[in-house]
Design a protein around this nucleic acid. Structure first.
Lengths: 173, 173
DNA sequence: TTGAACTTTCAATAAAAAATGAAAGATTAT
DNA sequence: ATAATCTTTCATTTTTTATTGAAAGTTCAA
């Protein structure tokens, strides 16, 4: 396969994956494009290669910077900005984990904390209230597990990340 | 807080979480409703409680059954169907993991496998081709890690799931 | 200070995804 | 076989989300 064709396919596949995980297709494609580009790209480059508008390119590149997985690169004597992606895929995973934890896990835990005590009420059976409380507790415990696991992985360096996951996969003696 | 209000908030929160993870809001809400309901619910119950149409309720309940996290419950002498959710949250997590692995990880790995050899070409620098190949390899290695981790967790029983994650969080001596 | 080069914003538009509801399809009792 | 009851489908509509592009904003050199 030719390099261009391979890149095209990767960008498409990464976009599809992104949309399955709640990331907009274009944002994932911009990320993919930067991942497979050797140097940094300008907004214009991104517009050309993905056939998207200036506003769209700008918005998505900024979103990727918010996630911490794309950096702005300034060149002396150049007015315009260039962008490059973090190439270490374990670092990328860590940064994404960090951001999703903040954006999704934290709000969930807040809600769970707010609703875990239900007042006794004459119109509701004790059984029903108990079932609810138990379900909330078990979700809370799972969320806590996820939260602590995430924070451990986030703090860890890459080698530790890898080796710990390896242990998880093949629990040794 | 009253039980009804707490349920309402949970359903809303679960729906929001779902949409951040690429699951439609309504599908997540139907799941949440079944999670916090003591008995099984009929399609009509779901329509009433979530204020959605029959077609919508039916589609989402079937999707949840495809994921393996909701079961049909038939009652003797009743024509209509009732639905109930798997209440063990670790089991739910395992079933979701299993399905997402199949739907998203496998296609990604297939694409990566197809594009990892790029033909040498006179119009492309060796450096560029090498960078691409290296990036694809590193993503492949990460995908493999994720795949093997997922399959280990899927095969594991609940206690093992918990205890292994515990080890991951607090690596002991 | 002006204007050239670039970035950002945002109201309007387009595209994609989800929801509706009526009709068609099942299933069972009579 | 027919009717009653319930489920499924799917063309249409609605809602949500993403994209565009022109205008406004910024930065800097001259």
């Amino acid at each position: 396969m030719q390099l261009d064709e391979a890149k095209r396919r990767f960008i498409e596949g990464w976009g599809t994956l992104g949309s399955a995980w709640g990331v907009s297709r274009t944002m994932a494609q911009v990320h993919a494009l930067l991942l497979v580009s050797v140097g940094a790209l300008s907004t214009e480059d991104i517009m050309d290669q993905l056939q998207i508008s200036r506003g769209n390119a700008n918005m998505n590149v900024r979103a990727l910077m918010d996630w911490g997985i794309v950096r702005k690169e300034l060149r002396p004597g150049e007015r315009r900005e260039f962008f490059s992606a973090e190439k270490d895929i374990y670092k990328v995973a860590t940064l994404i984990l960090k951001e999703r934890r903040k954006r999704e896990l934290e709000p969930l835990m807040r809600v769970l904390g707010e609703i875990n005590q239900v007042e006794p009420s004459p119109t509701v059976s004790a059984e029903e209230a108990a079932a609810f409380t138990q379900m909330m507790s078990s979700i809370q415990s799972f969320a806590n597990l996820a939260d602590r696991t995430a924070s451990t992985l986030i703090k860890a360096d890459e080698n530790w990340f890898l080796s710990t996951f390896m242990k998880l996969m093949r629990p040794g003696p």
